[in-house]
C-alpha cells in the first residue's frame, strides 16, 4: 500500500525548507534498527524522511539539546510530532525551555505505534485521545482513516500495583540491580534537560555515584520524583535502556497517581502552572496525620 502520509510529509517539508519557513527540520529517518532521528536542512533530503507505524521516537528532547538548543534563539526549527510527543513540547513550553514561535510543528495523524518486538500496538498508545494532534502548525494525514486504540495504557503499572509489598521490593531491587548508570534514560528523556543533574553533584552528594543497588534505587526514585507531574509517558527512557529496565513504569505510575488524585495530565495545558509548582486549598490530605 502506498504511504500517502509519508509522501505528503516529504512534499510539505520540501516546501517549508524552500520557502524558508524553517531552516532545519527534525524528523524520522532510516537506521539499522528501524527508525532514527534525521535532521533535514537541504530540501533535497526531505526524500529521506520516513513515516510509518514504527516511528516511536519522541524527538522533542532534541529541542533542548545540542545542536538545536543553540540555534533555537534565531532560527525557526521544524519538528515532526505525534500527538503524544506534542505533550512533551507543551511541557517544555510551560517550563519556558522552548518558545512556541521558534518552532514549527508538523503533527502526524497516528494510528498507534507497533512494538519492534512484534507484540502489537504499544501499551502507551492505548486509549490515545490525541491521534489527531491539535494545536500544531499543521496536521498531515487523514483523520477519516483512524481506528480507535482500545485498552488500558497503564496495564503494566497496574500489574505491579497488584503485587504485595515484598513482591514489589524484590521486583524493583532485582530489576534495578542491572542498572549500569549509563544515564541513557535521563539523556533520552525530553524533559530531563537540567544543565547539571543532581547525580553530578558531589557537595553534597545526594545520590551515590556508584552503580550500587542503593545508588541505583536512589537515582531512579529521585529521577521519578523530578518527573512527577511532568512525565508525558512517551517511554523514551525504557526504549533507551540497554538492560531492559522498565524505567517508565515508575514515572507512569506517578502520572497515573496524579491523574487519579488531582485530575492533572502533564502536557495538556501549556499555559497552566506546573503541577508541583502549584497547589489547591483542597488538595488531598487524607495521608497526613
Amino acid at each position: 500500500m502506498k504511504n500517502e502520509q509519508e509522501a505528503q510529509l516529504r512534499r510539505r517539508v520540501r516546501e517549508l525548507l524552500n520557502r524558508g519557513t524553517v531552516e532545519v527540520l527534525l524528523g524520522y529517518g532510516r537506521g539499522l534498527t528501524g527508525v532514527r532521528p534525521l535532521f533535514v536542512r537541504d530540501p533535497a533530503n526531505a526524500e529521506k524522511l520516513i513515516w510509518n507505524e514504527h516511528c516511536n521516537l519522541n524527538l522533542a528532547g532534541y529541542l533542548v539539546r545540542e545542536p538545536l538548543k543553540q540555534v533555537m534563539a534565531g532560527a525557526r526549527i521544524g519538528l515532526i510530532v505525534k500527538g503524544c510527543d506534542f505533550r512533551a513540547v507543551n511541557v517544555l513550553i510551560q517550563e519556558h525551555q522552548v518558545e512556541r514561535q521558534n518552532i514549527y510543528l508538523i503533527g502526524m495523524v497516528c494510528n498507534g505505534i507497533e512494538s519492534d518486538s512484534g507484540s502489537g500496538i504499544l501499551i502507551k498508545c492505548r486509549g490515545c485521545n490525541v491521534q489527531v494532534p491539535e494545536g500544531t502548525d499543521e496536521v498531515i494525514g487523514n483523520p477519516q482513516e483512524l481506528r480507535q486504540i482500545d485498552g488500558d495504557p497503564f496495564e503494566d503499572v497496574r500489574a505491579i500495583m497488584e503485587m504485595s509489598l515484598p513482591e514489589r521490593w524484590s521486583f524493583w531491587t532485582s530489576t534495578l540491580s542491572r542498572c549500569i548508570k549509563c544515564y541513557a534514560c535521563r539523556q533520552a528523556c525530553p524533559l530531563c534537560y537540567c544543565e547539571e543533574c543532581i547525580t553530578e553533584k558531589s557537595r553534597p552528594q545526594w545520590i551515590e555515584k556508584a552503580p550500587t543497588l542503593s545508588g541505583n534505587l536512589a537515582y531512579h526514585f529521585i529521577r521519578t520524583m523530578h518527573l512527577a507531574g511532568r512525565c508525558v509517558a512517551c517511554g523514551e527512557c525504557s526504549r533507551a535502556c540497554p538492560v531492559d529496565i522498565p524505567v517508565d513504569v515508575l514515572t507512569r505510575f506517578v502520572a497515573l497517581t496524579i491523574k487519579e488524585r488531582f485530575d492533572y495530565v502533564a502536557g495538556d495545558e501549556p499555559d497552566g502552572k506546573p503541577f508541583l509548582a502549584s497547589y489547591c486549598e483542597d488538595d488531598p490530605d487524607d495521608f497526613i496525620k
Binding site: 535532521f39 539539546r65 549500569i180 549509563c182 541513557a184 533520552a188
Partner: peptide, 11 residues
Amino acid sequence: ENCVSCGTCYY
C-alpha cells in the same frame, strides 16, 4: 548530531 551524550556506547 544524533548523539544525546548518554553512556550506552561506552558502558
